[in-house]
C-alpha cells in the first residue's frame, strides 16, 4: 500500500476537432491496493482519464506508466492485461451470448488454454456471486447482474487494477449496491487496486482517496474527510455533499453539539450517543 502502481505525469489530452482540452496537465499517482475515486461533473474529463489509463486513447503530452511499464502503442496489450475496465452501459460491453461466454471472452483473447478457462470462468463468477447464472442470456439479467458479470470478465484475467468508469450510473439502487458491495469485497480479499470514476458521492465516500476533477483539471485531491470539508464548493462544481455530512452540518446549525462532520450515518449516530447520552 505504498508504491505507486500507476503514475501519471503532466498529461494533457484534447479530442480531435475540439478547442478546449479534455485534460490539462494532470499529474498524480495511484498506489497499490488503494481505492481511488475520481469525481467530477459530466464533462469534467474524468472518463477521458479512464480511457488513457487503458491505452484506449493516448495523451498528446506527458506520460503514463502502469505497473512500471510506460504506456505506448507497443505496450498496450501488456497493460490491458493488468488493467481491467468496467464501462457505464451494461448492455454495450456484454459480448458473449451467455454469461459464461462473456466471461470467457477476455480469456479467449489472451489465448488461455481451455481447461484453465473453464476453471477461471467459474471462480470469477463465484467471486461476484453469479456462479449459478452460467447459461443465462444477457437480456434476462438485471443491470446490476450484467455489471457483475462484466467485473467477473475482468477478474478472470487477474488484473492488478480495476477501473469502474461510471459503472453504476445506469443502475437502480439495488444494482448500484450490488456492484459496490462486490467491488468492496474484492478489494479486501484480493488486494486489487480500484479506480472508480463516478459522480455518486456516496460511492466516493467509501474510497480511500478522492480526486476532484473540474473542467479538465485536477481540482483537489485528498481523503474523503478532507474532500467533503469543501462543502458548498462541491455544489458549485456540480457535485453534491454526502447525506451524513450535510446532516452533521444542519444539526450543528440547529445547536446539536458535534465536533466535526461525519462521513457515515453510523459515525454520526455513535457520536450523538456517546456525547449526549451521559448527560
Amino acid at each position: 500500500m505504498s508504491k505507486p502502481l500507476v503514475s501519471i505525469e503532466n498529461v494533457s489530452f484534447s479530442y480531435d476537432g475540439q478547442q478546449t482540452p479534455a485534460l490539462k496537465n494532470i499529474s498524480f499517482d495511484i498506489l497499490e491496493g488503494e481505492w481511488l475515486a475520481i469525481v467530477g461533473h459530466n464533462g469534467s474529463g474524468k472518463s477521458t482519464l479512464a480511457k488513457l489509463l487503458n491505452g484506449l486513447q493516448f495523451p498528446q503530452e506527458g506520460s503514463i506508466a502502469v505497473c512500471g511499464i510506460t504506456l505506448s502503442e507497443d505496450t498496450i496489450w501488456e497493460i490491458r492485461k493488468n488493467v481491467g475496465m468496467v464501462f457505464q452501459n451494461p448492455d454495450n460491453q456484454f459480448v458473449g451470448t451467455t454469461v459464461r461466454d462473456d466471461v470467457a471472452f477476455g480469456l479467449e483473447n489472451h489465448g488461455v488454454p481451455r481447461d484453465v478457462m473453464v476453471e477461471r470462468v467459474q471462480t470469477s463468477l463465484d467471486k461476484v456471486k453469479m456462479g449459478t447464472f452460467l447459461n443465462q442470456e444477457s437480456h434476462h439479467l438485471s443491470g446490476g447482474q450484467k455489471q457483475r458479470v462484466a467485473i467477473a470478465g475482468v477478474l478472470a484475467l487477474q488484473p492488478a487494477i480495476i477501473i469502474l468508469d461510471e459503472a453504476t450510473s445506469m443502475l437502480d439502487p439495488r444494482g448500484r449496491a450490488e456492484v459496490i458491495n462486490t467491488v468492496r469485497e474484492l478489494k479486501e480479499r484480493e488486494n486489487i487496486t480500484v479506480i472508480s470514476i463516478t459522480h455518486d458521492l456516496e460511492e466516493a465516500a467509501k474510497a480511500d482517496r478522492i480526486i476532484v476533477m473540474n473542467r479538465g483539471e485536477l481540482y483537489r485531491e485528498g481523503s474523503p474527510e478532507e474532500i467533503f470539508q469543501m462543502d458548498e464548493e462541491l455544489i458549485k462544481l456540480g457535485l453534491d455533499i454526502p447525506f451524513p455530512v450535510k446532516m452533521s452540518k444542519i444539526m450543528r446549525q440547529k445547536g446539536v453539539g458535534l465536533s466535526k462532520s461525519y462521513l457515515t450515518e453510523e459515525e454520526l449516530v455513535t457520536e450523538l450517543w456517546t456525547s449526549h447520552s451521559k448527560m
Binding site: 446532516m247 444542519i250 440547529k254 445547536g255 449526549h276 448527560m279
Partner: peptide, 17 residues
C-alpha cells in the same frame, strides 16, 4: 426534511436525551 429531523434531535437532546 433534514431541517425538521435536526430540530427534533436538538430538542430531544436538550431535554436530556
Amino acid at each position: 426534511s433534514e431541517e425538521e429531523l435536526a430540530e427534533m434531535v436538538a430538542r430531544f437532546l436538550e431535554g436530556g436525551g
